[in-house]
Amino acid sequence: MNELFYLIIEFFKTGLFAVGGGLATVPFLYEIGEKYGWFTIDTLSMMIAVSESTPGPMGVNMATYVGYDIAGIVGALAATLSLVAPSIIVISIIAVYLQQFKKAKIVQAIFNGLKPAVVAFIASATISLFMSVFFIEQSFAFEFINWKSIALFCFLYFVSLKYKNLHPIILIIISLMIGIIFRF
């Protein structure tokens, strides 16, 4: 019961403060995982992969997944509905005052500050992901570098630069097969 309560609070907060859609929810999700120990960064990374290969927005997918993990179907519904509730409230209010909102200079000013900051938040969560992928046991000593992952990263990055319009699913499938073949 307690967990369900925190689940609702945390996803409502994410829905209320994650500006910019999609990836903007990642730093919040990372924080939730760290704070409550509900999921690891590996799970978060897997969910990003799942979200890129299945329909639907990542925030919604992640909320459903985490909610299910914590409290079954009830948890999945609670987390997902909490995530979208702030949107419904905020947009319904804006919809009434649409013309005033469009002209408001302060909205644009706030957004000017948020845009670069959101990139930084996503980058910060990504750095944590890199640490967990490229270092074994989260230790930064030289002997703990995961060379297999680094080799695969370089290969995939090269492929993604060479074929710019490649769908993310292709990269995910290649990495999945290499992971199995070379026993990552």
């Binding site: 990836l23 990374s45 670069p116 959101v118 990139v119 992928v133 990055y157 992971g179």
Partner: peptide, 29 residues
């Protein structure tokens, strides 16, 4: 075998994130 597959996928996600950040960077900074 699923664990190995997931570890491989983690690397692909790193690439996807780097590319996404590069795009966002060009648009926002």
């Amino acid at each position: 075998i699923i664990q190995s597959a997931l570890k491989g996928i983690n690397v692909a996600v790193c690439v996807l994130m780097i590319n996404a950040i590069r795009n966002l960077w060009n648009k926002s900074i």
